[in-house]
Amino acid sequence: MTISAETRGQLLELAARYPKPRSALLPMLHLVQSVDDEVTIEGINVCAEILGITSAEVTAVVTFYTMYKRKPVGQHHIGVCTNTLCGLLGGDAVYSALSERLRTGHNEPSADGKFWLERIECQAACTHAPVMTVDWEYMDDVTPASAVEVVDRLARGEQVESTRGPVIRDFQATEHTLAFPLDGLVNDGVAVDEKMLVGLRLAKELGMSAASIPAGEA
């Protein structure tokens, strides 16, 4: 890669976001991935130089966190939750189907280098199990067939919408969002879905409410 003047400026902007610049290291590495599709040695060295720490100190951080990759991820990162709940509720089958379709294994790129497949841990979406992520945008309640379809459509360059957020862009775009979250996409997609509303709807149906109890009356 080449850290452009623009990227360097953004890295410096991140470092200035915190009372102590080193706090910016995690977002800075996300930004490096947004430019390089991986955390490159050059990216490590630039972060080290900006923060005044050694490249070993940056490497120590890079290798600790699973979201940082040391090989090019490709266009799309595909995650399948195979922790107990998602896995047993069907995530295992989803993973197998994707592994077969992409002809790759855990934490590896597909043969064409376009996709990266990963068995991921609990995504805090257990109510929507099994869950899959595309560039960390959520695909809730997937089946092996729907998951493969998502990948196929992405491979064909078709537009795919995540179930909670915006249209799928690519891995690098999401990594940029993680560094700079005000990406203008906040109004895309839905804020809540039926599973998040199921309790509220039922409460209304049953006439249950907390707000109806006047404040201060016990």
Binding site: A48, A56, T59, T63, F64
Partner: peptide, 24 residues
Amino acid sequence: GDPMLELLERGVRQQVGTAADQPF
């Protein structure tokens, strides 16, 4: 004052190491 030797990776894979291009 030479933090060029660091713990890398995590969990059971945690290991001592250096930056890829800078020795200790």
